[in-house]
Design a protein around this nucleic acid. Structure first.
Length: 286
DNA sequence: AGTGCGACCTGATCGC
DNA sequence: TGCGATCAGGTCGCAC
């Protein structure tokens, strides 16, 4: 569930409270959540280090530590990183606890236990065996100023797959998940099952801007909370009520009033307007 | 190259 | 009241 806007929101909220803060202890209660080390070694390498940088790559959070190592976190579906007072009670879903100077803790909480923590070195991710494949093969950052319309259109035309599958691929464009793919396709007026290599130049352009716009707006609203997403301070996001398609199957399309459909495309729940996003392309004008 | 599916998990929800 | 089935979805590995 947490996608680019949610990870970016967490990144910012952690930067506010963790900059130059020292880790005093590390407790791993569910070892499988740490992918790179056993609990003892993980703790030993982190204790005493300060957080010095806060970055994001796609859906990965990259926390830089004093000395150059990096704590990389992928939240998958239900992972949370929560900054709290140490005396705040923790529930059974808190699986890793970083004790911090000043009586606080950073807690990794994950109901479904799909998320992973990686402790990596200073060198490029691609050179590290322990780095997750997905991180090594990450595609372009959709909010990078260097990500051009032309590059995106060329990429689209080189694939025959459905738009939905393609936009979900992190090695093509990183950071999109099920929610923002549906939203971007709705905004662009493109059917999720449309073959990528059949898009006209103007359709490519619409999709490019739809992706960027929806991500930027969602960040402005601090992400989308369906059930699990919280930022580092435990706050929910405000973008949910601004979603136009995702989670709205059966409701009228906000643009034309036709009933929004919920189907399954590429194995995912998919929400779209059968009129505004008609399959043969069309010019969904306005 | 692409597609589809099972695996990994728990909790919420629904039908009976 | 409870029990089983189903769904939710990010990523990986595998089969076709």
């Amino acid at each position: 569930m947490p996608e680019l806007p949610e990870i970016e929101t967490i990144r910012r909220s952690l930067e506010d409270v963790l900059e130059d803060v020292r880790i005093t202890s590390v407790r791993v209660e569910l070892p499988k959540q740490v992918a790179t080390h056993d609990p003892c070694e993980f703790a030993g390498r982190l204790e005493g280090k300060r957080f010095v940088s806060f970055d994001r790559r796609g859906k990965y959070l990259v926390l830089g530590l004093e000395g150059g190592s990096r704590l990389v976190v992928h939240l998958r579906m239900t992972g949370q990183l929560l900054y709290t007072d140490a005396d705040e009670p923790a529930d059974k879903h808190v699986h890793v606890v970083f004790g911090l100077e000043g009586g606080h803790e950073l807690r990794y909480r994950d109901v479904r236990q799909f998320g992973r923590l990686y402790l990596l070195e200073d060198s490029p991710f691609a050179e590290q065996e322990a780095a997750p494949k997905g991180l090594k093969n990450l595609g372009r950052e959709p909010l990078d100023p260097d990500w051009s319309e032309a590059a995106f259109c060329e990429e689209l035309r080189s694939h025959r797959s459905m738009l939905k599958s393609l936009l979900l691929r992190q090695d093509v464009v990183c950071g999109l998940g099920n929610i923002y793919v549906d939203e971007a396709l709705f905004r662009a007026g493109l059917h999720p099952e449309r073959a990528a290599d059949t898009l006209s130049a103007s359709e490519c352009r619409r999709l490019y801007h739809a992706v960027r716009d929806v991500l930027e707006e969602a960040i402005d609203y601090r992400g989308t909370t369906f059930s699990d997403f919280r930022d580092g301070r435990g706050e929910t996001g405000g973008f949910r009520e601004r979603l136009k398609a995702y989670g709205r199957g059966g409701e009228p399309c906000p643009r034309c009033g036709t009933e929004l459909q919920k189907t399954r495309v590429a194995g995912r729940g998919t929400h779209y307007c059968p009129r505004c996003q008609c399959p043969d392309g069309g010019s969904s004008g306005s």
